[in-house]
């Protein structure tokens, strides 16, 4: 299996043969290639609705990676969330999303003026 590493902007071209990774220039690349050949994982970034007119949507991301095949489920959840508190960057928006133990966290602080 040949793939391009998406861990960092370098974009190393990786090869996985019988569980052995080549072409990587760092440890993270190796881990990425192994996951990608078994169960690909992704960090997902999106927004959720808020009640604040100055910031109708709040940017969020998964605090860690979730399985790629769970992205759809996460997006459905994000569609239903309504933020009513003045959250700060890093605050948890939803816990254990899409059947994982990964939280959804705010990547910006709610801004009101």
């Amino acid at each position: 299996m040949e793939l391009v590493c998406i861990v960092c902007p370098k974009g190393c071209r990786l090869k996985v043969e019988n569980g052995v990774v080549s072409g990587n220039t760092c440890k993270k690349g190796e881990a990425f290639a192994l996951a990608e050949s078994t169960r690909p994982m992704r960090t997902v970034c999106t927004t959720v609705a808020t009640v604040f007119p100055s910031m109708p949507v709040l940017p969020v991301r998964t605090a860690g990676e979730i399985p790629k095949d769970k992205i759809g489920e996460l997006m459905k959840l994000a569609d239903t969330i309504l933020v009513k508190e003045k959250l700060r960057r890093g605050d948890t928006v939803a816990k254990g999303v899409a059947g994982t133990d990964v939280n959804l966290v705010a990547t910006a602080s709610i801004y009101t003026d």
Partner: peptide, 10 residues
């Protein structure tokens, strides 16, 4: 229209 529909449902 809105990307997110939370408000509509509440």
């Amino acid at each position: 229209g809105d990307t997110k529909h939370a408000e509509v449902e509440q």
